[in-house]
Design a protein around this nucleic acid. Structure first.
Lengths: 99, 99
DNA sequence: AATATATATCGGTTATTCCCGATATGCCAA
DNA sequence: TTGGCATATCGGGAATAACCGATATATATT
């Protein structure tokens, strides 16, 4: 876990917002219900809720993934992203004990 | 607690290093022993251990303070900085529960 | 094969961060 | 009050981040 990379990924309002949306996908992405939430939520749904362009949202998701905070699954033409809860637990402990 | 500001403050190798030094001032700033560590460590000591200029270190300390992660006490011509441990606890809990 | 849809990537503009050297400010001592 | 030391602030150059529009890539449909 590259600490600086993680904190940089968290240093942006929109990226924090995305993480918060992904915490309750049923609430924030009801349109996804038909496909289930096991793999997470696809980029288009996240983009639809954001006020940024598709390319920016895609970049932001990549950066969150590089930081290890979310993971992705490709299914057909869709890429689903979901939170990596272990990473958040680890980060919480890191801050509590090491930083 | 402005989350983005806090994460930005933590998004830098040197600033993380300073926080880590301040965690064990007795170990990392033995020269400060004569004055005690109650108020923390003065800027000059921190600067001496860093490989950056005095002005940069001073800016970094200000940004950590604006984020609420450290606090300062002025004594004579010296400014002492120390960690604000409550802020780290709060951040740890925030990440565990809210982010 | 042609077309449509979802996502990723590329090139660019503007804003922000990273650092520096120079200088200002504040405090103390002679 | 002059000078010296500790720290803060200011102005700036270079690197990185924040976005965007356009385009490329991958998959699916007809």
């Amino acid at each position: 876990m590259d600490q600086v990379e993680v904190f940089k990924a968290l240093s942006n309002k929109t990226r924090l917002q995305i993480l918060s949306w992904l915490k309750d996908p049923e609430v924030h992405f009801p349109a996804q219900a038909q496909n289930g939430y096991a793999n997470g939520v696809c980029v288009g749904q996240i983009h639809a809720k954001s006020s940024l362009t598709q390319s920016t949202v895609s970049e932001y998701l990549s950066s969150l993934q590089r930081a290890g905070l979310i993971s992705s699954t490709r299914v057909g033409q869709w890429t689903y992203y979901k939170r990596n809860e272990e990473a958040f637990k680890a980060l919480s402990k890191l801050i509590e004990a090491d930083i």
